Amino acid sequence: MENYNLDHDIPVMYVTASSFPEGISEAHVQLHSRVLFSGERHFFGISRPEGGLHNIVYKAAAEQLNENEAQEYGLESMVIPKGMYRSNYISDYAKDPQQIGQAFEQLLDNLSVLDPNGYCIEMYIGKNDVRCMIRLNAKNGELKM
């Protein structure tokens, strides 16, 4: 586990999964049928409880390369905020996709240091790696640890 500084906001467009975790794969398929892979953009998985701890909402997302792109693709949009994140980097996650869930279990072990309005974010790097991360609380520019 390490801290990771996301030095800029990332506007994304997304498809919301019909359920969690069962609908994750289909949400990514829907997203990629509209937004093709490109070396210019990152892809994400974004999730958090909404409407209760056991009601996880998952969004398959792609970085917007221009501000009108979400509208052009007919997708909803949001911004992944810059800041310091607690993170785990997983190489070749496809060999054992369960590593992603395990990484988030580790990252969630100390809720007091995490942004209570933050998301669990999977930032896909290339076709094989993923950085799992959750934004840390910040107070006057300093991290609460």
Rank of each mutant, 00 (worst) to 15 (best):
M1F: 02
M1P: 15
E2I: 13
D9F: 02
D9A: 03
Y14K: 14
A17G: 12
P21V: 03
E22V: 11
I24C: 09
I24G: 01
A27H: 12
H28C: 00
Q30D: 14
H32S: 10
H32F: 08
L36K: 14
S38P: 11
S38N: 08
G39E: 14
F44M: 07
F44R: 06
F44A: 00
S47Q: 14
P49L: 03
P49R: 02
E50G: 03
G52K: 05
G52C: 08
L53I: 09
H54D: 15
I56S: 07
Y58I: 09
K59D: 01
A60K: 08
A60E: 08
E63A: 11
E63P: 07
E63W: 09
A70F: 12
Q71P: 00
Q71I: 09
G74Y: 07
L75Q: 08
I80L: 15
I80R: 14
I80N: 07
M84S: 08
M84N: 12
Y85T: 02
Y89P: 02
I90H: 02
Y93D: 05
Y93R: 01
K95Q: 10
D96A: 15
Q98V: 11
Q99R: 14
A103V: 03
Q106L: 12
Q106F: 06
L107N: 07
L107E: 07
V113G: 03
V113R: 10
L114Y: 15
L114K: 13
D115C: 09
P116M: 01
P116A: 03
G118D: 05
C120N: 09
E122P: 00
E122I: 03
M123V: 00
K127P: 09
N137C: 05
A138C: 09
K139M: 02
N140F: 01
G141N: 00
